[in-house]
């Protein structure tokens, strides 16, 4: 599948120096996207959290110990998206017009081939039917469909917010969105303002500028998936954590 460049390319930059690992993004994401809880949330192999927090340390003993967090949404890989080409019933696709990798729950047959193909563990399978204790179903968002058992789901870059922003723009007789008009729930909620979201194709956008930061990097960059989620860290050991390096290969910035 060849990547034809679309007009927009939404992406995200997460500043790991600012991230405190508070987990607000994970919670906001779950609330925004109608994520259900499972009976045993300690079963970490089967819980669902589109925005997962990975904790990493430099492995040194106290007092030199340093800790950092990798908030990991779906990377929305731009090049030969690993999950898209393998999906047999075309339930997941990249929209080349805006770069968002979609997942259609009513199309998904639950073969889980995409989970096998994704190296970021960003895809989650619904092992149970959605469970919303009595009363909580009233807090579900009507803009995001609730998933049934037996389908795969993942971060959608809060795609419904793009739709909402577009409708607003149309009502105001505009076709183009302004930078910051469409942001994801995790971006909006991050208390440390560590997350920036916007159009990577727009050279004036905040996110495009930050993605060119000298300390910006992506996860598993050498595999060639071209993720649209960038990270920034001033710590060499954190940047080294993001990819597999041969001994003596890593070049500190």
């Amino acid at each position: 599948m060849k990547a034809t460049e679309g007009k927009y390319k939404y992406g995200m930059v997460i500043n790991l120096d600012k991230c405190t690992g508070c987990g607000t993004c994970t919670v906001a994401c779950a609330a925004e996207n109608n994520l259900s809880v499972i009976r045993d949330e300690t079963d970490k192999q089967r819980t669902i959290s589109w925005m997962q927090l990975f904790k990493v340390t430099n492995g040194k003993p106290f007092p030199d110990t340093e800790v950092s967090y990798f908030p990991r949404p779906c990377m929305h890989c731009h090049n030969h998206t690993p999950c898209v080409s393998v999906c047999p019933p075309t339930a997941t696709k990249m929209d080349y017009n805006n770069g968002i990798v979609s997942q259609i729950y009513t199309r998904c047959i639950g073969c889980r081939y995409c989970q096998a193909a994704c190296p970021y563990q960003a895809r989650y399978f619904n092992w149970w039917d959605g469970h919303f204790p009595k009363g909580t179903e009233r807090y579900l968002s009507p803009e995001v469909s609730v998933r049934m058992r037996g389908v795969v789901e993942k971060c959608s870059f809060c795609h419904h917010r793009l739709m909402r922003a577009k409708e607003q723009a149309y009502a105001e007789d505009r076709r183009e969105l302004e930078d910051g008009e469409y942001i994801t729930a995790c971006t909006e909620v991050c208390p440390a303002e560590a997350i920036t979201f916007g159009d990577l194709n727009d050279p004036d956008s905040k996110v495009a500028k930050l993605s060119k930061h000298p300390q910006a990097f992506r996860l598993l960059e050498r595999i060639g998936t071209e993720p649209k989620v960038y990270y920034i860290s001033s710590k060499d050991w954190v940047r080294r954590m993001a990819d597999n390096y041969h001994p003596n290969e890593f070049q500190p910035v």
Binding site: T92, K93, D95, Y96, N97, I100, S102, I104, Y105, T106, R107, E143, V144, S145, S156, H159, H160, M163
Partner: peptide, 8 residues
């Protein structure tokens, strides 16, 4: 005709 235009 992209999926996410009509599906949510």
């Amino acid at each position: 005709n992209a999926c996410f235009v009509c599906h949510k």
